[in-house]
Design a protein around this nucleic acid. Structure first.
Lengths: 151, 151
DNA sequence: GCGAGTTAGTCTGATTTCTGGACTCACTGT
DNA sequence: ACAGTGAGTCCAGAAATCAGACTAACTCGC
């Protein structure tokens, strides 16, 4: 009788990457966060700088606020007006933005170099590097492995 | 007559983050890359581990191959069969995956902790940290500013 | 006090994309 | 001979995206 199913097995991986992408795995979502890092906190300004459809951006901002990445703050009573600010969780997305930026700088920059350079407070132009917090060494594709494997 | 337009101005920012997201700013694309990092290079296995619709995954893999992030390699002649391997550009997405993973580990892990721990070759569990390549200091939201500002 | 501008959205209807499931085709293994 | 694997494609309905027009509540300059 029950010869149905049997294959399939292996449900999708529980994975922090997947969970995170569920929230910000979308061009407009991450660009909205980028804009707030750039100090543009208002809807219209974001629409202009990002180039997203107003509709879509409004939806994304709702998601981001719901996820606790941004908070919506009223700065004017009477014509009610709002700004979006980063929460701590939002600020912690900075590394994600920086690694994406570095990849684009490396592989997608045109002849005249990256469109934007950041300067770190140490005085040097910022090149974002991912290191192991414990030993300080850069992490490359082959230098990390699943711990304890399956279970 | 031409009272149309006038506002609008400010075209969307040229930005490495935006360009990169144009390629991988999609849940399934990045999860496909994650799977290849996990060593799963074949279509069916990816479908199972990612949980993506076969159609969508097929489309994403085409994009990724076209973008030079993956390459498609035939491992069987007769029933023609293919595997996806990372190019150098693909391997350089590892930092992006790691920062997304760290964010999810921090903000989305359930009671029993992150679903997957990596061990760095130094022996410690890996916690990915983004530092300034020049000075080695961690980069936080406020510690970097646009260089030379506008123009 | 009037028209123009600003701000934060919402509404609209026409695409476009996504989705799960069935299907194909060429094998292999039992 | 029959089930299974692997890499997709095909389908039709559901959902999301898009550009642009619209709204509503002001403020500003003249």
């Amino acid at each position: 009788m029950l010869r149905v199913m049997a294959s399939l097995s292996v449900q999708p991986r529980a994975c922090s990457v997947a969970r995170t992408l569920e929230l910000v795995g979308d061009k407009w979502a991450l660009l909205a966060v980028r804009e707030v890092f750039h100090g543009n906190r208002r809807f219209d300004e974001m629409v202009r700088r990002i180039g997203a459809p107003r509709d879509t951006l409004a939806a994304r901002l709702r998601t981001l606020v719901g996820a606790g990445i941004l908070k919506r703050h009223q700065y004017s009573e009477h014509p009610p007006r709002f700004e979006y600010h980063l929460t701590e969780a939002g600020r912690d997305l900075y590394p994600v933005i920086l690694t994406l930026m570095r990849w684009g700088d490396t592989y997608l920059a045109g002849a005249d170099g990256p469109p934007l350079t950041l300067r770190h407070q140490c005085g040097h132009p910022l090149t974002a590097q991912v290191v192991c917090e414990a030993c300080g060494e850069p992490v490359t594709a082959g230098s990390a492995k699943p711990a304890t494997a399956a279970r």
